[in-house]
Simulated scan of single mutants.
Amino acid sequence: MAGREQQIPTNRRLHVLHVSVPTSGGVATVATSYVRDQVERGWNVTVACPSRGDLGYSAREAGARVRWWRADAHESTLPGAVLRLKRIVNETGPDVVHLHGGRAGLVGRLVVRDRVPTVFQPHAWSFLAARSGIQGASLRWERYAARWTTELVCVSTTERQLGESLAIHAPTVVIPNGIDLAEYRPAGARDRVHARKLLGLEDVPTVVCVGALTVQKGQQDLLADWPSVRARVPEAQLVLVGDGPDRRALERLADEMEGVVFVGARTDVPLWLAAADVVAVPSRWEGMALVPLEAMACARSVVATDVNGIVDSVPTDAGAVVALDDPAGLSDALVHRLVDPELADEEGWQGRSHVETHHDVATSTRELARVYLRLVGARRGR
């Protein structure tokens, strides 16, 4: 909800343009939370994004204007995306442009060039996902484009530190991702049994992994060592919630394995988290993943990999953070919690306390609003 700590320094409402190519997953969820808050503040909010996925429709439902923007690399050339976004910017005349993710950050900064306050939020640096042949080019671009970044919003301290260590220099603020604590409620042992019954799952030791089925989210690493988990916990089941380009390959990998269930993309994620004894987050890179926060909010123990963003968000008493490319460490941590449910439950409640203190969406949206007001006030005061 709108805070009273600052007022918009003008007689008209602040107009914010959010630009994003991702329209589902964590980036879209975070962007939608900002849109909802800003509409509630009485601001004018426009979202420019592709028409696929959830973002545009959720933004429209929240009360924002939506401009469909064809910008995917596989469906639009860079010059075409630039021309289309330039038209949107000129027609909407925003006071602040907020660019979400690498593709929007590339196109948006080429268009705006800091002529109006420009907020860039990587949601994980683009060069982390780039193939080796273009990784260097992606890094060089981020260094260059920093001159057109009025404020860089990092979702974790480690994301900020990585950028600084690689000579990406722009005014920067860290705003950790937040989640809706009313939507993701703590679930006890009875809730776990009830959730499994509703979802048609066996009532056995259960690992849940939520995320797009892509290289980034690391399900292939989790599956590679799942037989080791099953050897020590023979009844254990692994539930993969999500869909994506790697689904067929992952299903082939799991074809000869026992206890692996693919359930596709779901809108009832809190229920699947409630069904878990432990939530696995085997990501290979992140900005700050939402799934560990959602799992902790549901009072579930988390076993995750030691990558940027996760180390900032999962405290040691809420689960385990294991080294990337350490399959034995990952499986050991999962087994330890499957055979000791009291430990897992205690970690889950510690995680809930941590999220309540550090990752409430109301806090993150309020901090972002303060950034906008500061930038717009400084620009108008020139």
Rank of each mutant, 00 (worst) to 15 (best):
Met1Gly: 05
Glu5Ser: 11
Pro9Asp: 05
Thr10Met: 03
His15Lys: 12
His18Gly: 11
Thr23Phe: 00
Thr29Trp: 06
Ser33Pro: 09
Val39Arg: 13
Asn44Leu: 05
Thr46Asn: 08
Ala48Trp: 09
Ser51His: 06
Leu55Lys: 12
Leu55Pro: 11
Val66Lys: 04
Arg67Leu: 00
Trp69Asp: 09
Ala81Phe: 06
Leu83Phe: 14
Arg84Asn: 05
Ile88Val: 09
Asn90Asp: 09
Leu99Trp: 10
Ala104His: 07
Val107Ala: 02
Arg109Lys: 07
Leu110Phe: 07
Val112Glu: 12
Thr118Ala: 00
Val119Gly: 04
Ala124Ser: 15
Glu142Asn: 01
Trp148Gln: 14
Thr149Lys: 10
Glu151Ala: 10
Leu152Ile: 06
Leu152Lys: 04
Val155Glu: 09
Ser156Leu: 07
Glu159Trp: 14
Arg160Thr: 01
Gly163Thr: 09
Glu164Phe: 10
Leu166Trp: 01
Ile168Cys: 12
Pro171Arg: 09
Thr172Gly: 02
Arg185Asn: 13
Ala187Ser: 15
Gly188Ala: 12
Ala189Pro: 06
Asp191Arg: 02
Leu201Ala: 11
Asp203Thr: 13
Val207Met: 14
Val210Tyr: 00
Val210Ser: 06
Leu213Arg: 06
Leu213Tyr: 01
Thr214Asn: 07
Gln216Tyr: 09
Gln216Ser: 08
Gln216Ile: 05
Lys217Tyr: 02
Leu222Asn: 13
Ser228His: 06
Ala236Gly: 00
Leu238Trp: 12
Val239Cys: 10
Ala249Trp: 04
Leu253Cys: 01
Leu253Ala: 13
Glu258Met: 03
Val260Phe: 06
Phe262Ser: 14
Phe262Tyr: 04
Phe262Ala: 07
Val263Tyr: 03
Val263Met: 00
Gly264Glu: 04
Gly264Asn: 01
Pro270Trp: 05
Leu271Pro: 01
Ala274Thr: 05
Ala276Glu: 13
Val278Ala: 12
Val278His: 03
Ser283Pro: 15
Arg284Lys: 08
Glu286Tyr: 12
Glu286Gln: 03
Glu294His: 11
Ala297Gln: 04
Arg300Gln: 01
Asp306Lys: 10
Asn308Ala: 15
Gly309Trp: 03
Ile310Gln: 03
Ser313Met: 13
Ser313Val: 05
Thr316Val: 13
Asp326Gln: 07
Pro327Trp: 03
Gly329Phe: 08
Asp332Thr: 08
Asp332His: 02
Ala333Gln: 10
Leu343Cys: 05
Glu346His: 08
His354Ile: 04
His354Trp: 11
His354Phe: 09
Val355Trp: 08
His358Phe: 06
Asp360Asn: 12
Val361His: 11
Thr365Leu: 02
Leu368Val: 08
Ala369Asn: 13
Leu373Ile: 02
Leu375Ile: 14
Leu375Gln: 13
Ala378Gln: 06
Arg380Ala: 11
Gly381Asp: 06
